[in-house]
């Protein structure tokens, strides 16, 4: 039941990618290098696969990291050590090992192969999403927690003097400011995750890197990797632009300079 649903979704996305690919690749066919031109729809499919994987992983990881940071600040004492351990382990080991451990490693256990989770764990895409999410969540937790810890102490004291509860102080005063301080670092993490996502090509996902490797193994033309690199740069630019847009329009406005000069007068 789940499997057929997943297959439908998979083919819908692939069909969409290749439809865009056909529409895009026709007109620019003549301008591409001869080794890339016939494989152009593959690159478009890889482009969107990578983009979807990274954006999904980033958003899910942010939601997890936000919760873990809140627990680190407000939660009961016993939940802090496991969260710190999680962050330490995921930051201290290479992403490639995490991917291979889950994709190749877990398959050795029969209980895993027989369980309902096998639908997801046997698919490179889902394992990629899971591991990228968990990995990025660890890094983002570290970033957010650091940002909360480094806020000027006056913010916390001011909130205390207003009689806010610990929860309210964190939610209304500390976390929003920490988000502002952490945003550039979170953006960095997003770019790093984009580049790290090329590793999912080693667990059979046809992302941009995966397609580039297949095309390269057919043509032995190094321009293939050059083209993939250009598309990765485009992806970086896209994500950067997205982060800038959120920075500009997503945050609550601050008192502007005009406001300050008005009360000074």
């Amino acid at each position: 039941m789940i499997e057929s649903w997943l297959n439908t979704a998979h083919f819908w996305f692939k069909g969409w990618h290749f439809a865009v690919g056909d529409a895009l690749c026709g007109p620019i066919q003549g301008t591409l290098p001869a080794s890339i031109a016939p494989h152009c729809p593959r690159f478009v499919d890889g482009f969107f696969t990578t983009l979807e994987l990274v954006l999904l992983a980033l958003v899910l990881a942010f939601l997890i990291a936000r919760q873990l940071t809140a627990w680190l600040e407000l939660g009961p004492h016993w939940c802090k050590a496991p969260i710190r351990a999680y962050v330490y382990v995921f930051q201290g080991t290479p992403l490639l090992i995490q991917l291979w451990l889950v994709y190749y490693g877990l398959a050795q256990f029969e209980t895993v192969r027989d369980s309902g989770l096998w639908v997801f764990l046997s698919s490179g895409w889902w394992v990629g999403l899971l591991v990228l999410t968990l990995n990025s969540a660890a890094y983002q937790t570290n970033i957010l927690q650091g940002a909360v810890a480094n806020l000027p102490s006056g913010q916390s004291e001011g909130a205390d003097s207003l009689g806010l509860t610990r929860r309210l102080k964190y939610r209304k005063i500390l976390f929003p400011q920490a988000m502002r301080a952490a945003w550039p670092a979170l953006g960095n993490e997003g770019i790093l995750l984009l580049k790290a996502s090329a590793l999912v090509s080693t667990i059979t996902v046809y992302d941009l890197m995966g397609h580039a490797r297949t095309v390269f193994s057919r043509s032995y033309d190094l321009w293939v990797y050059g083209g993939a690199a250009v598309l990765y740069i485009v992806l970086t630019a896209l994500i950067t632009a997205l982060l800038w847009a959120i920075r500009r329009h997503g945050f609550a406005p601050l008192p502007t300079d005009e406001w300050f000069s008005a009360i000074r007068r």
Partner: peptide, 10 residues
């Protein structure tokens, strides 16, 4: 036993 060895490497 890939899990064991990847775990050890980790």
């Amino acid at each position: 036993e890939p899990f064991l060895f990847f775990f050890a490497a980790g």
